[in-house]
Nucleic acid binder design. Sequence first.
RNA 1: CGGGGCGUAGUAUACCGGUAGUACGUCUGCUUUGGGAGCAGUUAGACCGAGUUCGAUUCUCGGCGCCCCGACCA
Length: 417
Amino acid sequence: MRQSQLFTKTRREAPKDEVAKNAQLLLRAGYIHKEMAGVYAYLPLGLRVVEKIKTIVREEMDKIGCQEIIMTSLQRKELWEKTSRWSDEVVDVWFKSALKAGGEVGFGWSHEEPIAEMMKNYIASYKDLPIVVYQFQTKLRNELRAKSGIMRGKEFVMKDAYSFSLGEADHTKFYNESIDAYLRVFERVGIGEDTFVTFASGGAFTQFSHEFQTVVDTGEDTIYINREKKIAINEEVLNDETLKSLNVTRAELTEVKTAEVGNIFNFGTQKSEDLGLYYKNEKGEEVPVWMGSYGIGITRLMGLLVEKFADEKGIVWPESVAPFRVHLVELSQDNEDVANEAKELYQELTSAGVEVLWDDRDARAGEKFADSDLLGLPLRVVVSEKTLAAGKFECVDRKSGHVSHKSLQELIGHLTA
RNA sequence: CGGGGCGUAGUAUACCGGUAGUACGUCUGCUUUGGGAGCAGUUAGACCGAGUUCGAUUCUCGGCGCCCCGACCA
């Protein structure tokens, strides 16, 4: 894409009321627009990042047999009353609205109830199970206090999956596959090393629940980890009993700040019983379906990647989620040969399947470099009188700052390897 | 929801009980051209309402909005 066509602009300074690093940088770089407290729009560059993350999650979910759907944002009051979760005293993040024809609807802050209810139409026999569905949904939560930029808002994109199993054994099998899938997702977005399956306070059915926590300086959670044993314990369940059951001592654990990027829950059969979700087993008996839920905050993950990898110059995207792989910075300044060279390079790279943001703007070098650093694309390729004379392009790795000089063939080879 | 802070051009800031100045940005011209350039010109502003006052952007009250700490976070 030609940068001159991009309607967004970069800013030198962030609005004074944005404190979170992720929001400051994403706003300055033009990835997002703030609509109100805790509510952000995703602009062309930001949307590309969201879609990149979604694609990775989608591939890993599909790999373990999940089927993608999309539920509704408007939800029925009666349904949530069945599980005693319509009340504002029980769920304090509800957005609700009156229907003109009478009655009330809720705006989806979660989709456990509607999906379970819907599944009554498709689950009748043990032959129908297991089923796992997932969706990418905009969740609406009436948070009292939005904060941390895009990491905790009133409106955010989440991947939520729901498993429907015959019983505990089948559930556990999928639950473990899901953990592996999540770890692959986090590996692919570049935080595998620092992301831990963390024991946290359990639900009603298990001693522990599992959170996926990523080490980051600005994290809001505190967990205790042992990197060798790959053990992580949320501070909320750090006690002698937990240490003993996990066969680890306090001295072997290190305290770190983390941000939660995913979580998984075992619902058991409680929700199915509340909602009347049963199947018939081989003996013709009615058995409640065993349920689980699995979430990854897509936009939260995007914010975390900014928080974790940004440097003093701006954003540094992992290659797998960057909006473009290459930032082609053209320093032509009225030199037609340079301009033509840049155009040719853009066409060559694009036809080789490389995603390129081409800074073809009529701007000075300093501004272009500063913007390039701020945008954070993995590889900057400079085309100028210098590089034209040298016969090689200047390539700068955004993360390491490493500079190399490559011919067209070398560059394409490097990018398509 | 408890506590605290803040609302001045697109952005960041300053001053002031007598209607607002600077920087960046925008636009124009000339010069410049590998790390946010220079000169000249241009554009654009007091969140809303009430009160005090001869006069309010400034003081008081209310509303709305935003931020931070805590609580909450299925």
